[in-house]
Design a binder for these strands. Structure first.
Lengths: 184, 184
DNA sequence: GTTGACAGGCTAACGCCGTTAGCCTAGAGT
DNA sequence: ACTCTAGGCTAACGGCGTTAGCCTGTCAAC
């Protein structure tokens, strides 16, 4: 009833959709191609999924889980009281790496409004928790998030000049945002 | 031959498209609705515009011009040697204000890849020039741009929590990024 | 003054999309 | 044995961008 995954057919559908999206891009993600990959016809999908928006919401949930895991992995082997700047650097590089490795999924999960009512409760917060903890204050967390997302999406969309050294732009932003937090 | 505007009919089409996009959103922007607003049928548009992508490129050009003007206006009445932080604050507030006032146009112009070959030469650079000049270094300019775009698009997409005080998040980012530039 | 080109409208239609209606069949439950 | 249902199917709808092909009014050239 709620958006959980239990049915195996549903899981197959999500897996097929994810593979199509990741390898062929969003234009290729149609109900017909997803069905085709499973050897069936588009209308049959509607026995398992209420509409395409739900399918996308399931993919967004996968993306949020993936990002959350990546950010945790990136900070896992840091010393417990590592300086903020170092934590932020680790998080930023995990964030960027995941996004570049799953660009279509990243775009799907970050552009447009989030279908929050179709996402597992708490997932969104869980996914961004490492960044929020590292930032030092709520305002800084939001600023850091905006910076990271901005850098990432502009890179994915090819907005920076061809030869731009993005590592340095990342470093400039992180060093600025990581400087000696105020309170909290 | 090149994407210039001279024909009056073209200008009408762009104006109609802009009005539809700004008032009814991207889903309403179809070749049929644009034509309808001018009392004609969709196929006739193709006598004036090569395809919908070109029409979108013309709207993106309008957006870039609008943003460029806004950023210049925002910094126009600043003292000539104002401190960087102050200039950045002015630019940020102009940037955000324009985006909120023209949200659909802003989204169109910033998401996905830029159709650079269909844009007037130099417009992209002209549009972002005020920010680049204010940032102090190329890396900081890119970081600041990413931050501003991130804040803006996340706000437009309703990604921040409902009651979030975004003024403070903006301030946190600007203060961090505007702090005592290194070289250049 | 006739003619011919052409700019700029039109209708019909194509192939794609998401989606609905309605049918059929295999297998499980009683 | 009978029934119910899960899960497939085809046909079709309306909307999208777009193309082909037609027609008419204007206007320059002879």
């Amino acid at each position: 009833m709620t958006g959980t995954d239990v049915s195996p057919r549903r899981a197959q559908i999500v897996a097929a959709a994810r593979e199509i999206l990741e390898t062929e891009g969003p234009d290729a993600l149609t109900m017909r191609t997803v069905a085709g990959r499973l050897g069936m016809r588009a209308p049959s999908l509607y026995k398992h999924v209420v509409d395409k928006e739900e399918l996308k919401a399931l993919l967004i949930a996968e993306a949020l889980r993936g990002m959350g895991e990546e950010l945790r992995a990136a900070t896992a082997d840091l010393p417990p009281r590592a300086p903020r700047r170092r934590v932020l650097r680790a998080i930023a590089s995990g964030y960027r790496a995941w996004a570049l490795a799953h660009s279509h999924l990243y775009r799907l999960a970050t552009e447009g409004e989030l279908p929050r009512d179709r996402l597992p409760e708490g997932l969104e917060a869980w996914s961004s928790e490492p960044l929020v903890r590292a930032a030092g204050s709520q305002d800084r967390a939001r600023a850091a998030w905006a910076f990271a997302h901005g850098m990432t999406i502009l890179e994915l969309d090819g907005r920076f000049p061809p030869g731009a050294d993005l590592d340095r732009a990342w470093a400039a932003g992180i060093d600025a945002l990581g400087g000696s937090g105020p309170r909290s």
